[in-house]
Design a protein around this nucleic acid. Structure first.
Length: 357
DNA sequence: CATCCACCGGAAATGTTGGGAC
DNA sequence: GTCCCAACATTTCCGGTGGATG
């Protein structure tokens, strides 16, 4: 830890602040939906917004504020990405018992159904797209049609879909209220960073311009905080704009590392392959074939067995859901059926920042 | 107008792990 | 233990796609 960091916590991305910047409307919407928590009816909610706009923190602080008699369960579906794994988590939450594999899905469902009948429960399904990709909407269908549905609230969170992409029968019983998180403005990002810096760093240790630069580059708070944290870790006295500029790319790499952390080494190698190819050819888009070839090469260099093309195709989809690559699908055409893949540059705005007043 | 590109993505198969019942 | 079953990650298999090309 460098001398300017007095309290590292507020710069961590899992730090949940007590108040939010520019999220009054969303807060009101959420509170209205839970006006009467645990009483007559709990609503289902879908939170939508691009990455780093506070969706997860918002849901977590909501769970925090619920009365103790309400049982809560937070499930990051990028890690618990099948119906079964998610059911296990919910089971553990409602029974307070550890559980291993081997039980039938129907046993888990029955038990969950019984318990939620007695205790009001709120389940948050973060990164819901990952669960939908594997098992479709079977989990949401079950949860939305559970006995005593008024005792169970389902909060889904997605950075990719305004509405949960589910079949009609599920949509009609889920009926989620949608809350959108519009992107933070440059001013918002600045304010958030300043607040965190005040709670974390020594007085006078950050130049205003340094924060301004970050704030004018990205609206993704996760990335912005990773960036500021990196700067703070490398600074003895004062974080300057210049220093921040130099750290832009390493900070983005670090941000991606964090995103990919819950995934397999293969995911990281696939992403590395995409990055290398984009760097080498500076052609903006790459097709699936060359990516798999490069991935294969990387595996051989590491003396590891590569997975098959079919599997890597799914992993590319994962990277897409994480919004770190963008894919344009061609279902036929002069290049056949394939995808054009690009590195997502949305969070890296290379135009020089506008000076602040 | 037939053919082809080059991989998409569904479905079934495989091998592994961890149940409960006997 | 042994047997059978469920779920998982991954592999294997393959029909399908539609603009470009001749």
């Amino acid at each position: 830890m460098t001398p300017i960091i007095e309290n590292p916590a507020p710069l961590q991305s899992d730090y949940v602040p007590e108040t939010f910047v520019n999220r009054k409307e969303e807060e009101a919407g959420l509170q209205a939906a839970f006006a009467d928590p645990g009483d007559t009816s709990l609503r289902n909610i879908h939170l939508y917004g691009s990455r780093g706009q506070g969706k997860t923190h918002f849901a977590l602080s909501l769970l925090e504020d619920l009365p103790d008699r309400v049982n809560t369960c937070y499930i990051p579906c990028n890690q618990y990405d099948t119906q079964y794994k998610a059911l296990q988590q919910i089971y553990q939450s409602v029974t307070q018992e550890e559980i291993n594999n081997g039980y039938h899905t129907s046993d888990l469902k029955r038990e969950i159904e019984e318990r939620t009948g007695a205790v009001p429960t709120v389940v948050v399904l973060d990164e819901i797209d990952f669960a939908l990709m594997n098992d479709g909407d079977s989990l949401l269908y079950f949860l939305s049609r559970i006995k005593n549905a008024e005792n169970l609230s389902i909060i889904t969170i997605s950075a990719n879909h305004q509405e949960p992409p589910v079949e009609e029968r599920t949509r009609s019983s889920l009926q989620p209220q949608r809350i959108s998180f519009p992107p933070y403005t440059g001013e918002n990002v600045y304010e958030i960073l300043l607040k965190r810096a005040k709670h974390s760093l020594a007085n006078q240790s950050v130049q205003k311009e340094a924060l301004t630069y970050i704030a004018s580059t990205t609206d993704n708070i996760q990335y912005a905080l990773t960036w500021l944290r990196k700067a703070a870790q490398q600074t003895e006295n004062t974080i300057t704009e210049n220093q921040v500029k130099k750290l832009q790319s390493p900070a983005y790499q670090k941000y991606i590392q964090q995103l990919l952390q819950p995934f397999t080494p293969h995911h990281r190698q696939v992403f590395q392959s995409v990055q290398e190819l984009v760097d080498e050819r500076d052609s903006s888009s790459i097709r699936t074939g060359p990516i798999y070839e490069r991935y294969n090469q990387l595996c051989h260099e590491h003396r590891e067995e590569p997975l098959t093309e079919r599997r890597i195709s799914d992993f590319l989809k994962h990277l897409e859901l994480l919004n770190i690559i963008e894919a344009k699908y061609h279902y036929g055409g002069k290049n056949g059926k394939t995808r054009d893949i690009q590195i997502n540059s949305k969070h890296i705005n290379l135009t020089p920042p506008k000076p602040r007043k």
